[in-house]
Design a protein around this nucleic acid. Structure first.
Lengths: 222, 222
DNA sequence: TCTGTTCTGTATCAATTGCTACACAGGCAC
DNA sequence: GTGCCTGTGTAGCAATTGATACAGAACAGA
């Protein structure tokens, strides 16, 4: 790997700590680091997958696009997490089934497919990492699917704002992006936000939302 | 395992074929077989998971229940497949996050948690089985999530009937069950089915649907 | 400052879906 | 037969959501 700092960071994040010397060497030789200063799409649906993706810093967003062009966020990949879809593709020789977008200031390590499969066969820690990452994703997807089935858009919006806002209540995101995350349209989101503003539960600004009453929002989230 | 026929069946289904002698013995000693002659709920949300579930014959249905009481099918587990949620729970010591219902004439093998974790550590074939099963589930869930976001109920209904009907076009299922699978209500499903009947794409009967024009249905499925 | 772009605020109408209510048909037990 | 239960067919209204349209505010750059 060309970036020693990133190797250290990955260890700090709890990844690859228990590798054998052999495995570590394989990893450090094979891994490549990609930096994404600006938000940009880095994988398109149907792309071939070159390897396992590990987020070092920043965040990746995995989303689908409807025939009408609307986006819907499937899930996020945070620092220290592995892109499971890419793992799937590696293990099953599939094309990538969705789009991936890097948020600003994101660094991603790429472990070539062959390297990863070899590591998986020989390193218990990689086996556990893989299974655990898959497990977490399965739970997230099931939860999301359940929410889509059981909650209406207003509840999902409230939940999303709660989950994604910072400790100070700030959520920097345009209404269009918000709508994309929820698989809806900007106008509908704007209408729902309007009600929340009228009830003084949130304040809206250009490109940002500020939560004023966290508990009230939590009640609305069902 | 108390049922030699089932061990053979599982091998035929491609499971546990490549176990070491030691691993096979562990499995045969520890595995229990449960038979479900009638349709019944076998796991409730929040239950503790006693082990890994392998479907020998029949089918399991995993579903969630909304606060209002509506069911929504998350996915099915077919013969030769493992219940991944149970695996998740085993590896992460979690309670089961959904309900599971056995269809009539279903047999399920249960491998105690400890046995499975030991097998996972030592048997490459179990590692692969686990990762592959998780991968397949992730893809199914993502596909379902994408469909919920991008398709309307009519399209999802058409897709469901297509996927679940037999080769002769027969689908034995009440409209209520159909609605539960889709996370909707009977009345709405009945309304949509009515249109399909009027267009002579399907015929409806008590507890069954017969596909008359498979291609027309496929077009409607988006 | 001017201009073009992005984002927000708002209104209106259409389509979809959920909810309630009720009639009728088939099957089963008595 | 009679009554009961389950399942289907249908109607109508309410709520949610999507689609279209347009005006104005904030922002960036020339």
């Amino acid at each position: 790997m060309k970036d020693a700092a990133s190797v250290g960071e990955l260890r700090t994040l709890g990844i690859f700590r228990e590798l054998s010397a052999c495995g570590r060497q394989m990893l450090e030789c094979g891994m490549q680091l990609n930096r994404f200063a600006d938000a940009q799409t880095i994988i398109n649906k149907g792309s071939s997958v070159s390897g396992a993706y590990v987020v070092v810093s920043g965040r990746l967003r995995v989303y689908s696009i409807s025939p009408g062009g609307n986006e819907a966020t499937l899930y996020f990949i945070n620092p220290g997490e592995v892109c499971i879809l890419a793992l799937n593709c590696i293990f099953n020789n599939l094309k990538y089934p969705a789009w991936v977008q890097a948020e600003p200031d994101t660094r991603v390590g790429v472990i070539p497919s062959l390297t990863y499969r070899t590591l998986f066969q020989n390193e218990p820690s990689i086996q556990n990492l893989t299974v655990h990452a898959l497990s977490v994703l399965v739970f997230r997807l099931m939860e999301e699917l359940e929410h889509v089935h059981t909650l209406n858009l207003n509840e999902r919006l409230a939940k999303f704002i709660l989950m994604r806002s910072e400790a100070d209540g700030e959520l920097r995101m345009t209404q269009s992006e918000l709508a994309a995350h929820l698989g809806s349209t900007r106008e509908v989101v704007a209408k729902l936000l309007r009600k929340l503003v009228a009830d003084r539960i949130i304040q809206t600004g250009r490109g940002s939302i500020r939560v004023m009453q966290r508990q009230a929002l939590a009640r609305l989230a069902g």
